[in-house]
């Protein structure tokens, strides 16, 4: 069991860090685009204004946002309201956290289930986005169900951790 959780943790961490570097690189795309658009280096590059930057950075942003979700849950960095159940070892706290994670599971589960169906349909039909690049939807729209699937499994791992009596000193 513990081995399974550690694997889930590692996968979440990998994609979380990937997400971080996606954001990092978007910053450079945008800067490149501003420079090119404002004719600063037009004479060197001779390229047309780069419409693709806007679209590509949006697609990458969706991917990064949802790929990072599981990692943020694992690191317990999600915003929670800390007004009750402050003792991490009390039964009440464990029950509360379980309820909380159930809602996470419902949210993530629905997003995966319906997101996958939607994705499958447009993928089989070969649809693209209606935008400039006309990117295939199998690429753009898989971000939701892939990211939430990671979040779903990480939530399961967290539920089990709440009840794992051996590891009482959770941070």
């Amino acid at each position: 069991m513990t081995g399974l959780f550690l694997t889930i943790d590692r996968i979440s961490e990998f994609f979380g860090k990937l997400s971080a570097w996606i954001y990092f690189s978007i910053g450079f795309f945008i800067t490149y685009e501003i420079i090119v658009r404002n004719d600063i280096v037009r004479q060197f590059l001779g390229t047309a204004p780069t419409i693709w930057v806007d679209e590509l950075s949006r697609v990458l942003q969706v991917w990064a946002a949802y790929l990072g979700a599981a990692y943020v849950l694992k690191e317990q960095e999600m915003v929670t309201i800390d007004v009750a159940f402050k003792n991490p070892n009390s039964l009440a706290r464990r029950l509360a956290e379980t309820v909380a994670l159930m809602f996470m599971l419902v949210f993530a589960g629905v997003s995966v289930f319906f997101g996958f169906q939607l994705w499958l349909k447009s993928t089989l039909a070969g649809h693209t986005t209606d935008s400039f690049l006309g990117l295939p939807k199998w690429f753009t729209h898989s971000s939701v169900w892939v990211g939430f699937a990671l979040l779903f499994f990480q939530s399961l791992a967290q539920v089990c951790r709440v009840w794992n009596t051996k590891k009482i000193n959770r941070t």
Binding site: M78, T80, I81, E97, A100, F103, M104, F107
Partner: peptide, 15 residues
């Protein structure tokens, strides 16, 4: 839900 320490994102999305 929020008092039960549900992460705000999950409380809103799940609800």
């Amino acid at each position: 839900l929020l008092i039960c320490r549900t992460p705000v994102a999950a409380a809103l999305g799940g609800l």
